[in-house]
Design a protein around this nucleic acid. Structure first.
Length: 287
DNA sequence: CTCAGCTCCTGCGGGC
DNA sequence: TGCCCGCAGGAGCTGA
């Protein structure tokens, strides 16, 4: 499920185990995910201290004390599982009994503090790479990504300029990471519903006021999801260390055939396929 | 440049 | 029970 809110939730969950902490040993259980790991990745991670754990779009960036940064992408099915984190709120309190490894546990970071961070990814659409921290912005995976939707650079002026003249459906435009960072299929559907915009509407044919509504809908959708992830983080932290999946109430995503949640709206949620991916919307609320 | 379609990979649920 | 099919939250690549 990892779109921007889930990645942010994973980052926050990793903070107590990783930020400021040293990686005692990085264990690679295969040589690649989507792409081969960079040369000597295990050795380059082992012994490094994580100075800062950041997020850019759907990427987690771990700046190391070696002028390098670890780039992590969860792909479609990637998860981070923390174990040995006994009491997250008590610094330095870790125990050392870890559950057995599971299928698709591809990379394990054995932290000096006793925590173990496991990257599990059945479909292996995820990725890891190392890059000089000073060159991160020009890394091929990051160079052409658009502004963060929760930052100041993402506003109605910007979005209007990027959508102008484009015939592609707004759904596809918002999934394009070069236009805005971090959105995926779920939150695009949700944001379009909130903004009252039909997913098939041509991107260049949305009025200024509705573009303003759209930027605010995107922000609100993401902020609410991040808040929901944050609360679920507190809930499951003691249960198991699994990060990356949390319950969230969607208004249209996955609700085809169900009643539209808008008060008094007689419509039902529809599902259409656009460029191979499902879009969910209300034909009455979204134009 | 823009855009649609294909592709990587595994797992799950439904129909027969 | 087993088998086949469609579907899944991403995104790079190709070719028109």
């Amino acid at each position: 499920m990892p779109e921007l809110p889930e990645v942010e939730t994973v980052r926050c969950g990793l903070l107590p185990a990783m930020e400021g902490q040293r990686i005692a040993r990085a264990e690679l259980r295969r040589a690649d995910l989507r792409w081969p790991f960079p040369p000597d990745m295990g050795a380059r991670l082992s012994g490094a201290r994580v100075v800062q754990l950041r997020r850019r779009s759907k990427y987690i960036l771990a700046d190391l004390d070696r002028s390098e940064s670890l780039i992590i992408h969860l792909g479609m099915s990637g998860r981070m599982v923390i174990s040995g984190l006994a009491a997250a709120h008590v610094p330095g309190q870790f125990h050392h009994d870890h559950p057995a490894l599971e299928k698709h546990d591809h990379v394990i970071l054995h932290m000096e503090n006793g925590a173990r961070i496991t990257f599990n990814d059945p479909r292996r659409f995820g990725a890891m790479d190392l890059c000089a921290t000073s060159l991160l912005e020009s890394h091929p995976l990051l160079a052409s990504i658009g502004p963060e939707p929760l930052g100041n650079a993402f506003n109605a002026d910007y979005l209007a300029a990027r959508l102008a003249g484009r015939k592609t459906p707004i759904k596809a435009a918002l999934l394009d990471q070069r236009i805005v960072a971090g959105l995926g299929n779920i939150y695009v559907c949700e944001a379009l519903f909130r903004a009252g915009i039909h997913p098939k509407r041509a991107a260049g044919r949305i009025g200024r006021l509705r573009i303003e509504a759209l930027t605010e809908a995107i922000r609100a959708t993401l902020l609410e999801a991040i808040a929901a992830g944050g609360s679920s983080l507190r809930d499951y932290r003691q249960a198991n260390g699994e990060l990356g999946y949390f319950q969230h109430a969607f208004r249209v995503y996955g609700r085809q055939g169900a009643a539209c949640v808008t008060q008094g709206c007689p419509g039902m949620v529809r599902r259409v396929v656009q460029s191979g991916r499902s879009s969910f919307y209300c034909r009455i609320c979204q134009r």
